[in-house]
Design a protein around this nucleic acid. Sequence first.
DNA 1: GGCCAGGACACCA
DNA 2: TGGTGTCATGGC
Length: 212
Amino acid sequence: MSQPSLLKIYESLLSAFGPRHWWPAKTSEEVIFGAILAQNTTWKNVKQAINALKEAEKLSFKDIAKIDSEELATLIRPARFLNQKAKALKVFADYFGTKYNFNIKKMKRLPLAHVREELLSLYRIGPETADSILLYALEKPIFVIDAYTKRIFSQHRFMKIDDSYEAYQKFFMDNLPHDVQIYNEFHALIVHTGYLYCKPKPLCEECPLSNL
DNA sequence: GGCCAGGACACCA
DNA sequence: TGGTGTCATGGC
């Protein structure tokens, strides 16, 4: 039996769940906060940290550049790894201010590969965080791979669970149109599917992907 | 009360 | 290079 195409999987998830309207943030900067804070953390905890920043009126990198590290760590405490993530936000704020004068439009104008390399050089910005920023904040056509993607697509035998981030990304980008909207929606649908059906104990019989 | 989340990184062989 | 420990919260 041949495997269904990625586009077909995308379409069936889209019809099962509808558009996810990602990323759940009001501004590009808020996307970047979320991308850093969401590392290996539940979104519920991330929201608490973001709300704390909002209430303290610190949800902008201009403010993060000025804030004391310990105060920042306290605000983002619910998002785990507070000291590391506080440092990551400070480092990003520094970079964003120095290089782009806190202007997201300046970043958007540059080529994807150039910005990706810059992002990857920053503290605690690895491939998933960099690509989330590129896709959801800067609207660049790059596919985001996360733990749910690996779980779902290894379980369905498209890939092996231990295949590299780059291998997964190549698989998706070689088999889908290079389209920001599709990459955005597909990854959002994968996370939604994973959250509902592909926890460590999978609920495959209830998952829409089991019908393919 | 234990398990685990929308990772990244350091350290060691 | 790859394998493993660390980071140090809060919801279910």
